[in-house]
């Protein structure tokens, strides 16, 4: 991974930990960034993940992990500030811009991220990706939602079932 932007460790260099993806790629990242994951936080606090050890993440592939870490590295400084109550409007706008671009991704990557964010319990990322999927649903008809989310077109039986449901749920379509 890229060198840390700023070190706040005791000896001037930030503590690094190693995460190992399901396909055995090793990612070295600042402990502060990895600690955004509630799942990893305790292990890291216990001193795990350092040296040659590394923390294996059997549920996260390297493409997804690299994306997750991109998020964590960007958000770690603000998180270290306790949600950055004194962050400037510019900082917040920059994070917002980052977030918007971050989820502007291929659907399969988005779905992998949802799983990873859930497994790693990264609260901000969980909300960011869930909100992205919600935005893909908002204000659309059932057929539009199906297409947007990547559902196959309904079979005739499913279509009949959908029609029956729409009659039953007419009150939600007024």
């Amino acid at each position: 991974m890229a060198a840390p932007e700023s070190g706040d460790g005791n000896n001037g260099a930030a503590r690094m930990v190693t995460l190992i993806s399901s396909d055995n790629t090793r990612f070295e990242v600042e402990a502060a960034a990895a600690s955004l994951s509630q799942t990893l936080q305790l292990t890291i606090l216990d001193g795990g993940g350092g040296g040659g050890d590394g923390i294996p993440l059997p549920n996260v592939d390297s493409a997804t992990l690299s994306k997750v870490l991109e998020y964590c590295i960007k958000h770690a400084p603000a998180a270290a500030n306790g949600g950055a109550p004194n962050a400037t409007a510019v900082d917040r706008a920059e994070l917002e811009r980052f977030d918007n671009e971050f989820v502007n991704i291929d659907q399969s990557v988005l779905y992998s991220l949802i799983m990873a964010a859930h497994n790693l319990e990264i609260e901000g990322l969980q909300s960011l990706v869930a909100k992205k999927v919600a935005d893909m649903i908002k204000g659309k008809s059932p057929m539009e939602i199906r297409r947007t989310l990547g559902f196959p077109d309904p079979t005739p039986e499913e279509q009949a079932e959908m029609n029956a449901h729409m009659l039953e749920y007419g009150w939600a379509y007024e």
Partner: peptide
């Protein structure tokens, strides 16, 4: 949408 995206979701 990629194939099967809905199923993954």
């Amino acid at each position: 949408a990629s194939a099967g995206g809905g199923d993954r979701l």
